[in-house]
Every structure is written in structure tokens, then in C-alpha cells.
């Protein structure tokens, strides 16, 4: 009997403390229940942290029911203000859905909707003329025999943009092989003329790029490779647009060739991604 009395007293006290605590610091406290998405207890701290406002609002989330108790001061904040912060942390709720990027930034176990893709892929395709600038106008002109070689170059350029040294090395290896394997007889007359001039240099530079260690050395090799490849690709008269771009900052000025109109600088990676300008468009 004494035991039950003690226990119930303790329980009562515990209850009182929590209820006192629940009201502590928040004036004019109003309590409501809101629903917030989330997958497991792993998200609990994230949700509650996002929903907390000092002396204004406190959130207690229950993983099993996906419901939360929100205690807040209606004079100082609103339900939506709290829930907006929760959504910005990645959790859909009754008022707001989380931004796609915020959701994707959550850890795997917290991604309650599984993997989702960004809405940015959607296109306003049926607006007349929309999206034209991304259209590179692939014509059905004859494809040069050197095209696989160029494709390797573009792959290297892209890997440099991403500062991915491993991919660069791998593609450079392919490129070096392709340079050696070119059959001169299959080239157009124009290409042939240029090829005779650049052949030796191209071979050396491709090998240099292949053996360069580290992203910075690869970039140096890439800069000189570009200069050799430029007259060749110009002679080929490619079926798609190729942009000859200039970066004035790298080693007193360096160029690169790209299939994309947008400037993505391979010499600095993300540091100076949009630095540079198109000098010439080849087609």
C-alpha cells in the first residue's frame, strides 16, 4: 500500500513538474496539436529543434502518430511561423511542404518519402519557343571520324569542372588511346591537313595529361591540349555547336572548348565556375 502511495505521489510530482515545465518561459501559452511528417525517432530532435523559438514556442513530436504538441505564445508568433521553420528543415506538415533540396539534405533514415527528384526538371514545354536557348540545334551533318576523340575531350573538360581527378585520368587514358588509333585515311582533306601539323603534339599532350598527377597538374596539361585541339576541331566543322571559351585569370589566360553555351570553367572548379567568356562559336 505504502509502495503504491509512494509511486503515485512520485508520478503526481513528475506530472506536475512536466506541466510546470511545459508552461515555463512561454507567456499566454496556447497548446494545439499539429501533424508533421517524419519517419522515425531519428527525426524527432531535428523537428523539435526547428520548431523551437526561445520563450515563444515549443514543439513535442510523437513519431508513432506523426502528431506534435505545439505550445506557443499567440501574441509573439503564429502556428504557421513555427511550421514554416519545420518545413524548411525538411519536414512536410499540415501547413507547408518542405523544399525539395531541404528534404534531400536529410539523412537516409529521415527521408520519410523515400528518394524524390527535383521539380526543376519540369519544363514549360508548350509555351511557344520556350527553352530554345538550351537547344543546341543538332543538325544531321556528317559526323567527323574524330568525334569520339572530341567526346573524350569534352568528358575530361566536364570532369575538370567537377574537380574529379580520377575521372580525368580515366578519360585521358581513353583519349591517348584514341589519338594513337586515328586512321588518317578516313579524315576529310581539311582535317587531314591540320592533323599532320598537330599529330605529334597532340600525342605528347594526351600522354602528359594521362600521366599528370593531381587535379592542378591535369589542368595545366589540359590548357595546352586545348590549344592543339582547337584548330583541329575547327577544321572538322562539327555537327553541333562548340564554344571556344576564354578564362583570363588562369595562368595569365587559358582557353577551353565546351559543348555547353553556359560558362562552366574547368580551371577552377566550383571556385570560379562562371568566370570566363565565349570567344568563338564553332559549328
Amino acid at each position: 500500500m505504502q509502495f503504491i502511495k509512494n509511486t503515485s505521489l512520485a508520478l503526481l510530482m513528475a506530472l506536475m513538474t512536466t506541466s510546470i515545465y511545459a508552461g515555463a518561459g512561454i507567456k499566454n501559452a496556447k497548446t494545439i496539436t499539429v501533424s508533421i511528417q517524419g519517419s522515425s525517432a531519428a527525426c524527432k530532435t531535428l523537428i523539435e529543434k526547428a520548431g523551437a523559438q526561445k520563450n515563444r514556442a515549443r514543439l513535442t513530436w510523437e513519431p508513432s502518430t506523426k502528431k506534435a504538441q505545439l505550445v506557443y505564445d499567440p501574441h509573439a508568433t503564429t502556428k504557421d511561423a513555427v511550421l514554416k521553420q519545420v518545413a524548411l528543415a525538411g519536414f512536410d506538415n499540415e501547413s507547408y511542404n518542405a523544399p525539395v533540396a531541404a528534404y534531400q539534405a536529410l539523412s537516409k533514415e529521415c527521408q520519410y518519402k523515400g528518394a524524390i527528384t527535383a521539380l526543376h526538371q519540369q519544363k514549360n514545354a508548350d509555351i511557344p519557343g520556350a527553352g530554345q536557348h538550351t537547344d543546341h540545334g543538332v543538325a544531321d551533318a556528317a559526323v567527323s571520324k574524330l568525334d569520339p576523340l572530341y567526346q573524350s575531350y569534352f568528358a575530361i573538360q566536364q570532369a575538370l569542372v567537377q574537380s574529379d581527378a580520377k575521372a580525368v585520368a580515366q578519360k585521358a587514358n581513353e583519349l591517348a588511346g584514341q589519338v594513337k588509333a586515328v586512321k588518317m585515311g578516313e579524315l576529310s582533306a581539311k582535317e587531314h591537313n591540320v592533323w599532320m601539323v598537330v599529330m605529334k603534339k597532340l600525342d605528347q599532350q594526351a600522354t602528359a595529361l594521362k600521366t599528370a598527377s593531381g587535379i592542378e597538374k591535369q589542368r595545366v596539361a589540359f590548357a595546352s591540349l586545348t590549344e592543339t585541339l582547337y584548330p583541329l576541331i575547327k577544321a572538322s566543322g562539327s555537327a553541333y555547336k562548340v564554344y571556344y571559351n576564354h578564362c583570363p585569370m588562369y595562368n595569365g589566360g587559358a582557353n577551353w572548348l565546351s559543348k555547353e553555351q553556359e560558362i562552366k570553367n574547368p580551371y577552377y572548379g566550383s571556385k570560379m565556375l562562371t568566370c570566363g567568356s565565349t570567344k568563338e562559336t564553332l559549328q
Binding site: Q121, N124, A130, Q132
Partner: peptide, 22 residues
Amino acid sequence: YAGGKITVVANDGNDVEPVEVD
């Protein structure tokens, strides 16, 4: 815009060819 791409159709009161941007 949270709903995807934005198509720009005019600037300073003058029509422009629609262009799609983020």
C-alpha cells in the same frame, strides 16, 4: 519558384522571345 522553371516573356514592358530559367 518552387514549382519548377520560370519562363521570361517580357522585360521593361517589351516582349522578348520566351526564355526558360531557374
